[in-house]
Amino acid sequence: MLLTAALAACGSAPSLAPPIAGEPQASKAGATFTDRFGMVFARVPAGEFMMGSDESPQALAKAFPHADPKRLTDLADEAPVHRVRITRGFWLGAHEVTVGQFRRFLRESGYVPESVRDGTGGYGFNPNYDPSRTERGDLFEGRDPRYSWENPGFAQTERHPVVNVTWNDAVAMAKWLSQREGATYRLPTEAEWEYAARAGTRTRFPAGDDPQVLLKTANTFDRETALRWPRWRDQAGSGSDHYPFTAPVGSFAPNAFGLYDMIGNAWEWVSDWYGEDYYARSPTDDPAGPAEGSVRVRRGGSWHSWPLYSRVAFRNWNTPETRYVLVGFRLLREK
């Protein structure tokens, strides 16, 4: 069944019913379920969609006039657009994993985050840091033991998305929850992630094609954030989304599957190895990415992502041990 038909059959708006405690009972899109750990999941039904983007650099240049032409040609890994069938429905975290949830995982499991275990720390925002005077020329300071999932250099509450976590940290939490809950928790595949993020849409952003829609629907690189990075001011949205750094999860409206912050706030690790040409050879049913690789995919953009890089189709990647002030994760539960 095509996704549009599935949404028509069950209603495209997220359920307003209270979360279901204990074991999942509902299967329609937008239904919610709260596990015993207290994490809320939304139901994503099986279905088909067209994955990727085949927009030309010329078309993108009209929508993003300040983008460097080379950046636009570097987006070729979003093509070709190809049909993907998600054959099994799943439960996806309604929110990105929060600081409070990650803290509880560490406390109860005894797991030590990679940035602490290897002693090198993470990255962080430092208002006195001048990237133009450093060899690396990066926008943030690190690696440094001062920075970690607890301290990205700006204030966060227990309800903000955890960042500075590695792919390995995310997988460790998924494995621990699987043992604790008696169900399979994991990172979504890249295809599952994009299918869930689109929720039946084919536009650049879940709310439409115009970059202006981001200001009301996602926490991305806006004029307020750009005050701290004047070099990139032309790339910013033309207004403010009211969050210069991360926002508490759920600060913006959910998509049709009841999922919050699929675009912006924090990049989200997915399970796949990255393959630049993988879309050209991807199987139709439940693609899981290349069998091997050197870097893992992350999707969705962050509070520091330009509108160009906040499109649903955009792909990015890092090594599994990367910990960065912009990167977090969201978990999938299979049953």
Rank of each mutant, 00 (worst) to 15 (best):
E181Q: 14
E141A: 08
E96D: 10
Q212T: 11
G30Y: 04
A76W: 13
T246P: 02
R323Q: 10
S271A: 15
T134G: 07
E334H: 10
V81H: 09
T120V: 13
F125N: 05
S305E: 05
T246Q: 09
D222K: 02
S109P: 04
S115V: 05
G239N: 07
F125R: 01
A9T: 05
R202K: 13
L332M: 14
A26R: 14
V116I: 12
G328L: 01
Y185Q: 09
M50L: 15
G275Q: 05
G200S: 13
R298L: 15
V97E: 00
M1Q: 11
V297K: 01
G208C: 15
P188Y: 06
E192A: 14
E108A: 14
G89T: 07
N219R: 14
W149Q: 03
L227V: 12
A288L: 04
P57N: 11
Y279G: 02
E96R: 13
A174D: 02
F102Q: 01
V163T: 03
A29R: 01
P307D: 00
R330L: 09
S115D: 12
G119C: 10
A236D: 05
R299V: 11
E334S: 12
R202Q: 15
R298P: 01
A256F: 12
P188N: 11
A67H: 07
D77I: 00
Y147Q: 01
H242G: 07
K70S: 11
F245Q: 01
P113R: 08
T166F: 02
G301V: 01
N255T: 08
V295N: 12
N168S: 11
G93S: 13
N164F: 06
P248E: 04
H304E: 03
G258N: 09
G200T: 03
T203C: 13
A288Q: 15
P113Y: 06
I263H: 00
T284A: 14
D261N: 08
R36F: 12
P57C: 10
G208T: 09
L331N: 08
A46W: 11
G208F: 13
N255A: 07
E292R: 11
P283V: 06
H304Q: 06
R71V: 15
Y274R: 00
H160T: 06
F329K: 05
P19E: 06
L72H: 05
A79E: 07
E150V: 03
N151Y: 06
S15W: 00
F90V: 02
L308W: 03
E194R: 09
H95G: 03
R204P: 02
A197F: 08
R231W: 14
R104T: 10
A67N: 07
P14S: 08
T120S: 14
E192T: 10
S109I: 08
E158G: 04
L331Y: 08
R159D: 11
G239P: 00
V84R: 03
L2Q: 12
V270I: 02
F252W: 08
A42D: 01
A6D: 03
I20W: 04
G275W: 04
P290H: 11
